[in-house]
Design a binder for these strands. Structure first.
Length: 408
RNA sequence: GAGGGUGUAGCUCAGUUGGCAGAGCACGAGGUUGUGGCCCUCGGGGUCGCGGGUUCAAGUCCCGUCACCCUCCCCA
């Protein structure tokens, strides 16, 4: 029979990688809880038009990376390529805004993009993210950045934080026109990609890596020259708060982000340690998106982090609970060993009943390989062996043995 | 979507001008008939990614294909 292989760009996460995955998600969940963000569990599929209207019709994500299909009712469906659009849709559709005040959500799960697989880049990848709706002050930007920073710190992941401001929606509109005018005159010197970008999204020309493009943009109009008073002021506030929290950052005026919905503050946490795909977490404000998707004008800010990329940077897992191996010395004591194992589990201990039959030696090898901290030999009595020291004590009464283990 | 690299045992890899498919680790049994790690002995394991071609003969040469890795692009 021919072996069936996994689909290109997809992966099985198991063993140590699965532990890393859980560790990252659990850590993030704890921090989300500390910041009092509430979980929102969202569909993995959405109407295609949701992403066209939020992420942007001209973006690569929408143009060539979405998994789309028609369902049996003829609906145009997409596997979600990112999380923010769905949270915004849910916020509007469920009239969450009607409760007044502001709202904080986090999510976790798979995203899908049909891209060329690479280190730290898969067609199904997983993100954790958070969104904050209904507040537009700089405090909310910093709250999100601080939240991401806390997660990375607990995971002991070292990154560089880059920030920038894109200005308000109106500021940016004026600036983009000016930039387009300026670059159109230099069009001949731009790379092929940038010629296209000039039409679709001139901002992206600013972070092109081609030398000739870099030269041409040096003298180009600067975004900060077009920022309104309010935008400048809020950007200064954001920087002030970050400094006050001892969160180091570098300003990168070329940081523009690839999704259309961002406004004002944008940020990326970047590492050099995992190759070309160095952005580990990123986000920013999107004050116009809720409105664009049919909701009431609602400012918002959020972020997303790639779990696979975080996994590449986590090299130390926290030590787990001690494992206790229960070994019947021969088949005669199998039933008793089963009972002992279950009793210990009810006492909230972590137990591996050694299922392998055969010599005691081979059972011990299994216990050793599983990194058991203790072994209990079950016969007419119970012998507790400490696997680190090798010392062994005999117990007649199982309850006393249990108490000893629980106190250790 | 474009360019480059790599596919041989469970893992990491060697394999010369084309001439019997290899090592280390891992795994199994034993060395101790009731005790792991270190050491020793023995053992099981392969469609050489897949398909085609050249040849007396292909892991090795040629073509195609798939997967992974890297770069560009894009992004988390």
């Amino acid at each position: 029979m021919e072996e069936i292989k996994k689909v290109r760009g997809f992966q099985d996460i198991y063993g140590e990688n699965a532990e890393k995955y859980r560790y990252i998600v659990n850590t993030a969940r704890k921090i989300f809880d500390k910041y009092n963000f509430k979980e929102i569990i969202l569909p993995y599929v959405e109407d295609v038009s949701l992403f066209i209207r939020s992420v942007g019709e001209e973006t690569d994500i929408v143009q060539k990376e979405m998994y789309t299909f028609k369902d049996k009712g003829g609906r145009e469906i997409a596997l979600r390529p990112e999380g923010t659009a769905s949270v915004v849709r849910a916020y509007i559709e469920n009239r969450i805004f009607a409760e007044g005040g502001y709202h904080k959500f986090f999510y976790e799960g798979a995203m899908f993009r049909y891209e060329r697989p690479q280190a730290g880049r898969y067609r199904q990848f997983h993100q954790i993210g958070a969104e904050l709706f209904g507040i537009n002050n700089p405090l909310s930007d910093v709250e999100i950045i601080s939240l991401v920073k806390d997660i990375l710190d607990v995971l002991k992941i070292d990154t560089r934080l880059e920030i920038n401001t894109l200005g308000s929606f109106e500021d940016r509109k004026i600036y983009i026109e000016e930039l387009r005018k300026y670059l159109s005159e230099k069009k001949e010197n731009l790379c092929e990609d940038c010629k296209k970008r000039l039409e679709k999204n001139p901002l992206r020309v600013l972070d092109c890596k081609v030398e000739s493009c870099k030269d041409e943009t040096k003298e180009a109009p600067k975004l900060y020259e077009y920022l309104s008073e309010t935008s400048i002021k809020r950007y200064e506030e954001v920087k002030k708060y970050l400094k006050a929290l001892d969160i180091n950052f570098v300003e990168n005026p070329r940081l523009v982000r690839g999704l259309d919905y961002y406004t004002d503050t944008v940020f990326e946490f970047i590492t050099d340690k995992i190759g070309a795909q160095g952005t580990v977490a990123a986000g920013g404000r999107y004050d116009k998106l809720v409105e664009q998707l049919g909701g009431p004008p609602t400012p918002a800010v959020g972020f997303a982090a790639g779990i696979e990329r975080l996994m590449l940077l986590v090299d130390e897992l926290p030590q787990g609970e001690d494992l206790i191996a229960v070994i019947p010395i021969n088949d005669e004591f199998n039933l008793l060993a089963l009972k002992v194992a279950n009793k210990l589990r009810k006492e909230n201990l972590k137990v591996e009943l050694i299922l392998k039959t055969g010599s005691l030696k081979s059972k011990m090898k299994v216990a050793n390989k599983l990194k058991s901290s203790y072994v209990i030999f079950v016969s007419d009595s119970y012998e507790l062996k400490d696997m680190l020291t090798g010392s062994q004590i005999k117990y007649e009464d199982l309850n006393i043995l249990v108490q000893t283990l629980k106190n250790s």
